[in-house]
Structure formats: structure tokens, C-alpha cells
Design a protein around this nucleic acid. Structure first.
Length: 378
RNA sequence: GUGGGUAUGGCGCAGUUGGCCUAGCGCGCCAGAUUGUGGCUCUGGAGAUCGUGGGUUCGAGUCCCACUACCCACC
């Protein structure tokens, strides 16, 4: 992997990452396809058409179904889903948080009950890395615990210490697997994850500690899980400078267009979020003038596209009224068009961000977009 | 025509021996939430002269009579 820093503006970074599956221009928004598909009937062909650079898939979910051994036997995730560009796999760490009701955390790892059929599933650092190795993703994420934002110091501190021990085990395991014959992707990279809730000194100490492991990239995890925007931005302000600046920095699970602009401004390269796809399925669509809820009655006879001038499939051909009708009638095409629009919007937003960084006008661009997003539709 | 049944917000229903019914629920409708995705979930809100008319009673969605509409069976 090669990380080439092309330009900076304040802390904001414009970079190019070369991987075995091709180049990633950053800042980038990764499109979330948990179960090896973007929900909403979006194909990988669609993704190529809307500027998707990286697809994000999930270790836990693919392990449960269809099984990582099956994916390996089918030639790896790339071949399986017909996507030859970069893929990042989330480790299953977030499921420690999101499936809190059906798991137990121990030093060796996490005992889940499958959300599909209830069978016991054990996942520790070695298991997570092995699964991700079978999937053959471009970037594997370390297996961590994502504690709730409101957790107290006496919960966060031991949790973060365990996450560090898990990270070292992940690193050892991926290095071991790299040497094994038949590994799907011997060039697979491991990114470490910083945790610490909203407690400054824990965040910083942890960032310093994991930076020493000299991994190819680092993520800030455990944000946007209940804390305020101000708290999230503050943690980025104090934490990101303690992560290597000559490597990709990934803010996990974030966020709204405004969150992303603020993240870029604080030195983040990679983002991902379920918002464009999940909200699309639920009829919420993004524009430069804020988010619209297409279920709202005011769009019943609105002949305009979702956003004037947008070049996505939905906006080139269909009205708000028609997409609203499809969504209300639960026609799959409604979801599909809304999701395609949202992903296009996010990918296009990142392109605008990169252009403004190239030109040295990011600050101005960001202020304008944030104002426009907040003002809403005229 | 005869006998039986049913009529409660847009739809489907619940309403116990008449009294916490100032009429409840599901869907739908109108809004809002959702941040490393369990095609979910959650939170608010609007909307009903309880088919019509009369009667009994201190009090009727609940009981009685007539009428109307629909459903079923028989002729």
C-alpha cells in the first residue's frame, strides 16, 4: 500500500491510496453493503456508475450467512459479488455494540447468539481476522469493542485496554495468515481502531499506544453512538493529531453530510455510514438544501427531481411525486431510486470536497455547503 | 317474502350483568427520530354526533320498538 499526501488545508488532507485493488482518492465515503450487497436492490454495476470507490462489508454478518468458508471457496468476496475495486470489511466489533442484547464479552473474545437462528457464535480477534482473510477484503478492521458513548471511565478504561490487547492479537494473526498458502489476499491490510468514549486522556493515550504498532491505517471508532456533535468534534480535535498523519485515518460510521465536512476539516480520510442507504429505503433523500422526507404530503404532486441538476439515475428521469408514489406503494423501484440518489449524492459530495482541496478552497466550500444544508429548501 | 345475523374514525375490529367510555386497538393517514445496517424499530399527532328516529332509566355504544342498509339461509 502507498499513501500519497497530495495537499493539505489546515488539518484537512487530500490524498491518494494505492491498493492491490486499485486507487482510492481521499477523502472518500465508503458505501455500506453489510451482507455483500447494498440494501435496496443496488448492484455492483450500479455502484460503478455512481462513483463508488470502496464497498464496506461486514465480518459478523457474512460469517453468519452465507459463511466465510463458502465465500473463500467461491474465490473471495470480490469475485463473489463481482466487485474488483477496494473492499473494507468491518470486524464485527460494532456488533458487540449493536447486538448488545445477545452477546457476552470475555478476555478471549465475544460470545454471540446468531440473530438469524440463535446458534452460539464465538468471535475473538483471531476468528475475526481469519474470517476477513477468507473474505479477502482489501482492508480488514481490527476486532474491537465499541462501548456506549455514555459509559463511565471505570467501564471504558478496561474495555480500551482489552481492545489494545485484541489489536495485538489481530496483528499477529494477520501476519501469520499472510504466510499461509492459499490466502485469498496476501496483501490484505489491517487497520487499528482507537476507542475511549468521550474521555480525552483515554483517547489520546490509546491513540499513542496503537500508533506504535505501525499499522497501515487507523480508525477512530466509538463515535456517533449517543454523544453530541460537539463532543464528537472535540474528540476528533484532540485525538486525530495523535494518529499517524502519513497514513489513512478513518472515522467509523459517520455520518451526515455536515458531520463529514467537519470530519474532513479535522483530518479524516475515510468515512462510512448507513444513512444514505437506510434513509433512502425509508424515503429520506439528501440534497444540498438539506434532507427531504419523500413521504411528506407536500411532495404528492411535486414534478421536480429530488435535486435540480443532480445527474443520478433518479434525478435524470423521475419526479419526486413518482418516487413518493413508489415508496408508498412499497415498490422496490422506489427504494432503489432513493438509495441510488443518496449514494450518488454522498459520492459526489466527496468529489466536490476533493476538488475544493485540490484548489485550496475547502474552507470556503465547507462553509457554503453547511449554510445551504442548514437553510433547507427555499 | 320468511327466519337469522351485523351496523362503532378511511379500512378491519374490541367494547364484559347499562355507570372510571371524557369510546380502545391494529392497519392506513400526518409529522419526527434513526450514524462501523436485524428491509427494522421507536416517538408524537389528526380523525367518531357509536346506521336513523323514538322509548325505558338518575345514567344507553350497551336494554326495548320502528325504520334503513348490508350479509347468510330458506322459499
Amino acid at each position: 500500500m502507498k499513501y500519497e499526501l497530495l495537499k493539505t488545508e489546515g488539518r484537512a488532507k487530500r490524498a491518494r491510496v494505492e491498493t492491490v485493488h486499485g486507487v482510492i482518492e481521499t477523502p472518500v465515503f465508503m458505501n455500506v453493503g453489510t451482507a455483500a450487497a447494498i440494501k435496496g436492490a443496488v448492484s455492483t454495476d450500479d455502484l460503478r456508475g455512481i462513483g463508488t470507490q470502496v464497498m464496506l462489508c461486514n465480518t459478523y454478518h457474512l460469517h453468519v450467512r452465507p459463511g466465510d468458508d463458502l465465500v473463500r471457496d467461491m474465490g473471495g468476496l470480490h469475485k463473489f459479488m463481482n466487485w474488483d475495486r477496494p473492499v473494507l470489511t468491518d470486524s464485527g466489533g460494532f456488533q458487540v455494540f449493536s447486538l448488545a442484547g445477545i452477546r457476552k464479552i470475555r478476555e478471549e473474545g465475544v460470545y454471540f447468539r446468531s440473530h438469524v437462528d440463535g446458534r452460539p457464535i464465538f468471535m475473538g480477534p483471531e476468528e475475526s481476522v481469519r474470517i476477513q482473510s477468507n473474505l479477502g477484503s482489501t482492508i480488514a478492521m481490527a476486532f474491537d469493542e465499541c462501548p456506549p458513548a455514555l459509559a463511565e471511565r471505570d467501564y471504558i478504561l478496561p474495555s480500551v485496554e482489552r481492545t489494545t490487547r485484541w489489536l495485538k492479537r489481530c496483528k499477529a494473526e494477520i501476519e501469520r495468515l499472510r504466510e499461509e498458502p492459499g490466502t485469498v489476499n496476501p496483501e490484505q491490510m489491517l487497520f487499528g481502531i482507537n476507542q475511549g468514549g468521550i474521555i480525552e486522556d483515554i483517547r489520546i493515550a490509546h491513540a499513542d499506544e496503537i500508533s506504535e504498532l505501525d499499522l497501515p491505517g487507523y480508525a477512530v471508532g466509538g463515535l456517533a453512538v449517543g454523544e453530541s456533535h460537539e463532543e464528537m468534534y472535540h474528540i476528533l480535535d484532540v485525538t486525530v493529531p495523535h494518529l499517524p498523519q502519513n497514513k489513512p485515518t478513518y472515522l467509523m460510521g459517520v455520518g451526515t453530510p455536515e458531520n463529514i465536512l467537519e470530519g474532513v476539516d479535522r483530518g479524516i480520510d475515510f468515512f462510512d455510514c448507513v444513512y444514505p442507504s437506510r434513509n433512502g429505503r425509508h424515503g429520506h433523500v439528501y440534497t444540498h438544501h438539506g434532507k427531504l422526507n419523500l413521504f411528506n404530503k407536500k411532495f404528492e404532486r411535486d414534478a421536480r427531481p429530488i435535486e435540480e441538476g443532480c445527474m443520478c439515475l433518479a434525478c435524470r428521469s423521475y419526479s419526486r411525486a413518482y418516487i413518493r408514489h413508489l415508496l408508498k406503494a412499497q415498490e422496490m423501484l422506489g427504494m432503489r431510486l432513493a438509495v441510488l440518489h443518496n449514494l450518488y449524492f454522498y459520492n459526489h459530495l466527496m468529489e466536490e470536497i476533493r476538488e475544493s482541496l485540490d484548489k485550496g478552497t475547502f474552507k470556503e466550500y465547507k462553509d457554503n455547503v453547511v449554510r445551504s444544508l442548514r437553510e433547507g429548501e427555499a
